[in-house]
């Protein structure tokens, strides 16, 4: 009897080449349901490229992306998002002129009849509004709800991006450097949010350069260097791995 669940996300021998440059070579990676997995590596290692391939922003040169056992590799980005993979961006990409509140509405799929998308919000989409309220509260964004998101301080903008990604109730959340540029307290707040999201059943794959943050939060780490997986294991194992030290320190030396 085999009752094991398929991984929430599986990358099976993904290769991505830009012209002659191999940004990713034969990358395989699993995220099990409810796991928080870290993807680390020096600058230019191919981490963001991995996210772009998963979300359909780039097409893999070869290999397969599976979400709960279903291949999504050749789907367009919006279908992959609707299938349950949402992300944030390394360079924040909020919609200009949109308030925080509007960001929480726009990313939600509309259930029921298509014409309801054409009716004024307040008459037609009670569920959407309730969900947005819930997410607003979860991310403690209530007091800036009507502010244009782009005018907020950097840390809050990152929060809005996370909130936008979460409103659609994804199964897998991809965070690209969620605490870059944040101070210790802000990073701690994000860590707490990520842990609470996991409690809610979300699986998370995150990229981060802040080693303390990654080591304290992730169940497992994957380490990339020049597009090649050089290590995979629990944080303590990775910390002691000579190949990883070499990739980071060898570069700095």
């Amino acid at each position: 009897m085999n009752t094991t669940l398929p991984p929430r996300l599986r990358l099976d021998r993904i290769t991505k080449a830009f012209g002659g440059v191999h940004a990713l070579t034969d990358l395989s990676l699993d995220v099990m349901p409810g796991q928080i997995i870290g993807l680390i590596g020096p600058n230019g290692a191919g981490k963001t490229t991995t996210f772009n391939v998963i979300t359909g922003a780039y097409r893999a040169s070869s290999g397969t992306v599976l979400l709960d056992g279903q291949a999504v590799t050749s789907e367009p980005p919006h279908k992959i998002a609707r299938a349950g993979i949402m992300r944030t961006f390394q360079n924040i990409r909020l919609f200009s002129d949109m308030t925080v509140w509007e960001h929480l509405l726009v990313a939600q799929p509309h259930s029921g009849l298509a014409v309801r998308r054409l009716l004024p919000m307040r008459f037609s989409n009670r569920k959407t509004i309730e969900r947005a309220e819930e997410v607003l509260e979860f991310f403690a964004l209530g007091n800036v709800r009507n502010r244009p998101a782009r005018t907020l301080p950097y840390g809050l903008q990152r929060r809005v991006e996370m909130a936008r990604a979460v409103t659609a109730r994804p199964r897998l959340l991809l965070l690209d450097e969620p605490v870059a540029g944040m101070n210790h307290d802000e990073a701690e707040a994000i860590r707490a949010l990520v842990l609470r999201l996991r409690q809610g059943g979300l699986s998370i794959l995150l990229i981060e350069h802040d080693m303390a943050f990654v080591m304290n939060l992730c169940d497992e780490l994957y380490v990339l260097d020049f597009g090649i997986l050089i290590a995979h294991g629990r944080p303590a194992e990775i910390r002691a791995n000579p190949a990883v030290l070499d990739a980071y320190l060898g570069r700095a030396a």
Binding site: P77, F95, D97, M98, E102, V106, A107, A168
Partner: peptide, 19 residues
């Protein structure tokens, strides 16, 4: 809202699920 998102950043709009 979807129209505004697409006008502003088509790629990001696609990645949050908009066609």
């Amino acid at each position: 809202l979807e129209i505004r998102a697409v006008r502003d950043d088509e790629t990001a709009a696609g990645l949050v699920g908009l066609n």
